[in-house]
């Protein structure tokens, strides 16, 4: 028991956060949902071929990203720095398949 106290392992305090009551903020470097700036997109479709898992499609509406497929690898943002940025958005759970489609409209 003495050892425990000496080491302070019983005095770690609260180590968890009251999420979701309070927001959890990831580190700056965190790689989350790719976000497309529709206005900067010239529909060249380089991102579509750069995506290793076919998560991106170009439609009449705009650029569509499937969060069901995306592995957050950052390849798309690398080929298209003008329009795509990896955001820190991580709350991507959805209750329907439709909710896993993120559409960025062409500007």
């Amino acid at each position: 028991m003495f050892k425990f106290l000496k080491l302070g392992v019983l005095k770690r305090g609260v180590q968890t956060k009251p999420y979701p009551q309070e927001p959890a903020v990831p580190f700056d470097a965190f790689i989350g949902l790719p976000v497309v700036d529709g206005a900067a997109c010239d529909r060249c479709s380089h991102c579509v071929s750069a995506c290793p898992v076919q998560a991106i499609s170009l439609t009449d509406e705009g650029v569509e990203i499937s969060t069901a497929r995306c592995i957050f690898c950052g390849e798309c943002a690398e080929v298209c720095p003008q329009a795509i940025k990896m955001s820190r958005e991580f709350e991507l759970a959805a209750t329907s398949r439709e909710g896993l489609r993120v559409v960025y409209r062409h500007g």
């Binding site: 770690r12 180590q15 580190f27 592995i71 957050f72 990896m86």
Partner: peptide
Amino acid sequence: SVGAANGYLLREKALNLNECLTGSRLLRS
């Protein structure tokens, strides 16, 4: 349990360091 809880806490800190450096807890990409 005390050892396990302290150990997993440490592992979590290591994962946080991964995320802080690379953006990915499991060092992807």
